[in-house]
Design a protein around this nucleic acid. Structure first.
Lengths: 199, 199
DNA sequence: GGCGCAGTCCGACAAATGTCGGAGTGGCTG
DNA sequence: CAGCCACTCCGACATTTGTCGGACTGCGCC
């Protein structure tokens, strides 16, 4: 049912890498691998997008490689969440990694199912964008009815469908929609979406 | 220019609370305050939305209050990012807070401008939703041209505007759009937006 | 009472959107 | 070479969308 998720696994230890890769592939992920920061960046550049990056912090002689990887990925346009794996969780390292934009820290030793659980959670998080809807609509100063209509528009419904759901005539809904546009400073459904979800 | 940001400050020490509140108000935030988890939840329930929550971890006799606050807010539908303030940054506490969904940890002592910088950064982060566009379009298997058109649609442009930008006729753009809809399983611009930004 | 405001509804119109069938080019590949 | 595919364009049509002006109700407030 779900589309395959493309994942980049960065791990210098060949045994650990192969082991994790097997578990990830078995779980249905399309799994790219890399053993260093440079290789990881090259792999990331070779695909149109990544759903999630999993990286060891210690990469060969580079004992902060995973941490350095995060800003490097961001700089090259990769916006996927990054899960960092660490053997020695020291406070400074944790804080530094989070400040760089890592999404999660997983401590060694861990079982494959724990990593899968973390990935599942990280991938589920984008739904927090519902917050953007609350924020945008409240800032626009919409009335209760206008907010209700706006939310249904943002769910992809047509004016007729909204009218049926809300128990109004299509004319009334279109009237509200015009008012919503005026308050948000937009002129179409598409612009309203872009007002709420700027990217 | 920017709309006022509504912020909830949770801090048990009256002096620190008043001091931070002054700084935040001076910076242009609409600042609600609370001294306990219960009070914070009540304040949050009283407003339609919050842009960001700033909370001390230690709240009176509850030395994990700020950490408990995060899931409590989530349970009551608040999706705003949470910045936690801590005097004693221990590793377990940090990990626990992040696992609960906190966005950032700020260590005491800090200056007001440091908190403001953290808030500014946290509030800037929702723009990471650009990742959703990459992911959704790639998964739909769109061709290069279709991706280009889809991105412009998602920026709020009309078919005519896209035609001008891309150097095509309006007919051609509409043709691509129909193809995009077929691949994404939608039937309108609004549904395409909801396909890319599910919430 | 009068005023404003949220909410309801209508007609009518212009514009944009989405679909269908048809058609042509160029490139890549078996 | 024949076939596939991306890309281009057209006409024609039905539908949806967005706007404008006008109108009615009910509620709260000065």
């Amino acid at each position: 049912m779900t589309a395959p998720r493309r994942l980049l696994l960065v791990e210098d230890d060949p045994d650990a890498r192969a082991s994790l890769e097997r578990a990830l592939v078995r779980a249905g992920y399309e799994c790219l691998t890399a053993a260093s920061v440079a290789e990881a960046l090259a792999r990331a550049a070779g695909v149109p997008f990544l759903d999630v990056v999993v990286s060891d912090i210690v990469l060969g002689d580079d004992d902060r490689g995973g941490v350095r990887l995060v800003p490097a990925l961001r700089a090259s346009g990769v916006r996927a969440p990054v899960v960092l794996i660490t053997a020695f969780a020291d406070l400074d390292g944790v804080k530094q990694a989070l400040n760089e934009g890592a999404s999660f820290l997983l401590e060694k030793p861990f079982r494959a199912h724990e990593l899968l659980e973390v990935i599942r959670r990280v991938l589920g998080e984008p739904r927090d964008i519902g917050y953007l809807v609350d924020s945008a609509l409240a800032k626009a100063g919409l009335t209760d009815k206008e907010q209700a209509v706006a939310r249904l528009i943002l769910k992809g419904l047509t004016s007729v469908e909204i009218a049926e759901l809300e128990g109004n005539s299509e004319k009334t809904v279109r009237q509200h929609v015009t008012q919503i546009y005026a308050k948000c400073g937009v002129a179409s459904r598409a612009e309203l979406f872009h007002f709420v979800f700027p990217w």
